[in-house]
Design a binder for these strands. Sequence first.
DNA 1: TGCCAATGTTAACGTTGTCAACACATCTTT
DNA 2: AAAGATGTGTTGACAACGTTAACATTGGCA
Lengths: 213, 213
Amino acid sequence: MAAKRRPKITRAYHHGDLKDALVRSGLDLLRTEGLAALTLRGVARAAGVSQAAPYRHFADHRALVGAVAEQGFMLLQEAMLVAVRRDTGRMGFKGIAIAYVTFGLENPALYRIMFGAEITREADLPDLRRTGSGVLGFVRQGIEELQRQSLIGPGDAGVMATALWSMLHGLVALALDGQTEGSGLSVAELLAETTRIMMFGMAPRGVTPDVIA
Amino acid sequence: MAAKRRPKITRAYHHGDLKDALVRSGLDLLRTEGLAALTLRGVARAAGVSQAAPYRHFADHRALVGAVAEQGFMLLQEAMLVAVRRDTGRMGFKGIAIAYVTFGLENPALYRIMFGAEITREADLPDLRRTGSGVLGFVRQGIEELQRQSLIGPGDAGVMATALWSMLHGLVALALDGQTEGSGLSVAELLAETTRIMMFGMAPRGVTPDVIA
DNA sequence: TGCCAATGTTAACGTTGTCAACACATCTTT
DNA sequence: AAAGATGTGTTGACAACGTTAACATTGGCA
């Protein structure tokens, strides 16, 4: 039909790559305007399409949030991967931990989405599920590597990884809530201290598990 | 001087104790219908008043959420207090930890609100701020008690408390997201394992901090 | 070529947060 | 006790959002 529009790039009626564009818009809105801006209408606007267009790609708001969160998990994993590669040869766990926490602090809205209520459970959003547990797998690999180097004692690496992840996530979450300020330390210092505790414990020499029973 | 008005029986026009009633309704809605149900109009409906009535007591939606969250922190603190009293004489930290996690798992929507994005920072909601840091104080007291008993080594109790809180919060948060399932352990087992790690560390005997540098 | 499924648009509905204008109730002051 | 004054609740409205139905356009395929 009549070329009502001669686009410089191949975008007229059919966008061609709308789903990705919407997710990208979502990440952008999250970064620039915060959590509340991640709306279906918002991403549609940002992508220059009509309000109902996203429904061709996302069943509902949850699905959009899920897709954005999934992207977030990928970015997080990539950040950790970069950290690992950077200090190759070294133990690397410290680097992973710092990368994790840094990612959370630098992308507060995105991080919140990734662990937000909207995503919870329900078993739909299977992709997200998989990507999310990828983080756990990553930490677990780090643990196993350390075990191989005998820097960490024997034990179920999965459990240890979950414990470590709990610590990291908890620290980020509390920091994002401004709830670490009472300690008087920076998040970086807190991370160092907490990591040390996870490595060597808080109990003084001589106190063994059986003392506490 | 406006002496504290005594909450009378619910009157026709003036409710008498609407603010509390709204917060109670909020807790109720949270428990029965979940996060999305905690709306200004919803609590108004539940309290039997008009849609705009809450605005006489809460500046906006955030303020309502803040008030509900504050109540949540009080309930959490109370749950921990009960746990402490129950196993009086014993070290008690285990009890506190279990009480904390149990509270989170049994009140998922409320717990999420308490650490939700809506509340973050901003320094308004000063009451909430205070109540929230009460939790930290509580954990800190536990630490100090354990230090007195020499079951925990010397060190800044505030930092240790923050580390412990991070661990507890992280575990609850991951569990609420269903992200602990990969470990194959129950949350209770994970808590026990994680607590053990925080006490005695993951490093095998012989590996000291200077090995890792 | 002609048709169809995928993709995008417009228009509407119900719900929510929020505000302004108003009504009633309780307290204070005279 | 009468008359404000001030707090508290109501009604009605608006914009934004999620969601759906009905319609339009396109690209690919038979």
